[in-house]
């Protein structure tokens, strides 16, 4: 029981970090989704040409979504957003705002280089006047995501190593307590696998149970956090954005726990389990 709780606490540390990573990565993903690329059309482009450009853009595999905004819609939106400034445009006599496409790229094409190449390619299409996007924001987002991933890998390795060490020591204590039994088993002709398999299974069970208990602990902490945020009121909506692990990830974590438990047992057996007869 103590061994399971020790393992669960260690894996819960890994879990908290993973939960933070998953949510931060998701938040970065939402911010990336918000990055829109504006493709402005030349004023002289006919409706047919605009439709042809739209077809060309839609056939691009990098494109995730596309919305056409006609000159009239652009003017309407401007007036709606800046009612006090609309008189300025009326004074010009004709609508100076161009028709445009608002484009969102697929996740794998949202990196700074990919966006730049895509924009450069679209600029060469006849009838396209300008392609605008916020390069600095895309660069900053890419840096944030890369940092999150690097920190995740680093901390993940350290925490996993800590988990293996703790599980290894837990199993080691078990082996130490049973050193006489191990020596007797070797003496009477037990093969290495006969001795190792029960301990490897024990390590796997310890890891899986520890992982399951850590997930329950995390779920409790997660629900308490959500309730606290909801009760505060000021951060309304945040509790909807924060997510827990999907069932698939929970299952994967239990499998990873099993693997770590097995690895801990294996290391202990290699160093300690070969009891002298």
């Amino acid at each position: 029981m103590v061994a399971i709780l020790t393992t669960a606490s260690t894996l819960a540390c890994v879990g908290i970090f993973l939960l933070l990573y998953v949510n931060l990565r998701a938040a970065a993903g939402w911010l990336q989704e918000d990055v829109k690329i504006m493709v402005y059309l030349d004023d002289r482009v006919s409706r047919e040409s605009a439709a042809s450009i739209e077809e060309q853009l839609r056939s691009d595999r990098a494109l995730a979504s596309l919305v056409f905004i006609s000159k009239e819609q652009a003017l309407g939106e401007f007036k709606a957003q800046f009612p006090s400034e609309s008189r300025l445009l009326e004074g010009l006599g004709q609508n100076p705002l161009p028709a445009s496409f608002v484009v969102t790229l697929s996740p794998q094409f949202r990196g700074p280089d990919a966006v730049k190449h895509w924009a450069e390619r679209v600029r060469t299409i006849a009838g396209v006047a300008q392609v605008n996007y916020n390069q600095d924001w895309i660069n900053a987002l890419a840096t944030i995501i890369r940092s999150i991933e690097l920190i995740a890998i680093g901390v993940g390795i350290v925490l996993s190593a800590a988990a293996v060490t703790i599980i290894r020591n837990t199993i080691r204590l078990t082996l130490y307590a049973r050193r006489d039994e191990l020596a007797i088993l070797r003496l009477i002709g037990a093969t290495t696998s006969f001795i190792r398999v029960p301990y490897l299974l024990e390590g796997a069970a310890l890891g899986a149970l520890g992982s399951a208990v850590s997930l329950i602990m995390l779920k409790v902490v997660y629900e308490v956090f959500r309730q606290q945020v909801r009760a505060m009121g000021r951060l309304a909506g945040l509790e909807q954005m924060v997510t827990f692990f999907s069932p698939q990830i929970c299952l994967a974590l239990i499998v990873v726990g099993m693997g770590l438990g097995c690895a801990g047992s294996f290391v202990s057996l290699r160093r300690f389990g070969e009891a002298k007869v």
């Binding site: 003496l187 009477i188 002709g189 093969t191």
Partner: peptide, 12 residues
């Protein structure tokens, strides 16, 4: 790996 099989023939 052959030692366990030897020990099965030798009582101690």
């Amino acid at each position: 790996s052959e030692i366990p099989y030897l020990r099965r023939k030798v009582g101690t």
